[in-house]
Design a protein around this nucleic acid. Structure first.
Lengths: 218, 218
DNA sequence: GATTACATGTAACATGTTACATGATTAC
DNA sequence: GTAATCATGTAACATGTTACATGTAATC
């Protein structure tokens, strides 16, 4: 009785399912929890969560039961065995190609169509976002290191993600520092024959970098 | 006679407009050009480009003219003055918050719901993607450094983007090397009371990192 | 008891992807 | 001359966001 070749569901649905794998949550709790960690690298509007979770129920990957809160109702969701299996199967499939997606980089690439100031502001904001990410991650890691993290049994996993995000925030800080320095020295953003400083910086980039995958680790 | 409060358009549309700011392109050329550079940090399906470009024409940010190729027609698009202005205005607005989006990280975060092997494969694939990105960027930078880049007058901008992507590919290579080492040492991915090795790694993460924004540059 | 913030959604619409369709060109 | 690949899209559907709507709890 499976309802025809079910369409595949995506990372957003599986993220929710992943949270449900830990415990049951009300819809509202789910939106908040998604906002805490996941939104750093998978930001989604809250309203979408409400819809996705109902799709999970349609597919019997989760079940809903209703509690009353005054005159209004609240829905609590719990993962099913089928749900756990589906989650496991998904994790065994390869991820979509592509390391990242970033609007800020798009703006930098289009930088010559805006003012110098626009570019500097973009990088300034990237730097601020990196600082905030670092702060949040340091706080989180402190909790885990002190044994007060929210799901202590997940310390090993969270440590991996935190490591990545901390390294990334450092990368962005360094990049924006470099970028703001470079851009400040430009007369403006406009296209122009490459100057010697730019050529030198281009050469620096490939210094010690081969075309191949091989790379010296520090 | 502007048609009521026009909805804002997004980064995808402005990316196309940004390409049009350089020269005029046929729709097909646009899809290919988007695939070359932009898709590394703003991947979009080709079919969407065909639709977006028509929306740009609707809004008079670009104009289309039709050329014949045998019995079939081809459309060439050119930016309008209005288009250049719109692009400039957009670049003066702040970007959406969020440094990046990454499905691979989602999978790592859900790693304890899959097998050790799934996690290792995810990181393996990340490493491969990083290698490929590095290779492509090195090649591109070599061209620019040698004066044979496609839009040499954009060397200064492209150098910034290339710098970011090269640093990122190094970060991912380092992270996945670290991650695979750590995960290999686990008995399995399952949740469990944090062991001493994990706690030590957590402490390492915040070593020399303050909660605040301040950060020593190397 | 009025105001504000928290909790819980729905409707409308914009954006993105998959699958298909078909003409033109190139390689054999 | 036929198969493969390049070029050029459209249709259908899935996903994502914005704007709204309204009940509940906290606070003053």
């Amino acid at each position: 009785m499976a309802k025809s070749p079910e369409r595949a569901i995506g990372p957003t649905s599986y993220s929710i399912l992943g949270l449900l794998a830990l415990r049951s949550w009300t819809a509202y709790e789910l939106t908040k929890q998604m906002g805490r960690t996941l939104h750093h690298f998978w930001p989604r509007a809250e309203s979408g969560i409400y819809r996705e979770i109902k799709r999970l129920v349609d597919r019997r990957l989760a079940v809903a039961d209703t509690e009353a809160v005054g005159r209004r109702s609240r829905t609590r969701y719990t993962i099913t065995d089928e749900g756990r299996i589906a989650l496991g199967s998904w994790l065994a499939t390869p991820h979509e190609p592509g390391l990242l997606e970033s609007e800020a980089l798009v703006r930098i690439l289009l930088g010559d169509q805006g003012t110098k100031d626009d570019l500097l502001v973009t990088m300034q904001r990237m730097a601020e976002e990196a600082d905030e990410l670092r702060t949040q991650m340091v706080t989180l890691v402190r909790h885990y290191a002190g044994g007060t993290g929210e799901f202590p049994e997940r310390s090993h996993i969270n440590h991996l993600v935190a490591k990545f995000l901390l390294d990334l925030s450092d990368l962005v800080s360094d990049f924006t520092r470099y970028g703001r320095e470079v851009v400040t020295a430009w007369p403006d953003t406009a296209g122009r024959p490459p100057d010697e400083a730019t050529m030198e910086r281009l050469r620096e980039l490939i210094q010690n970098r081969s075309t191949g995958a091989a790379r010296a680790s520090s």
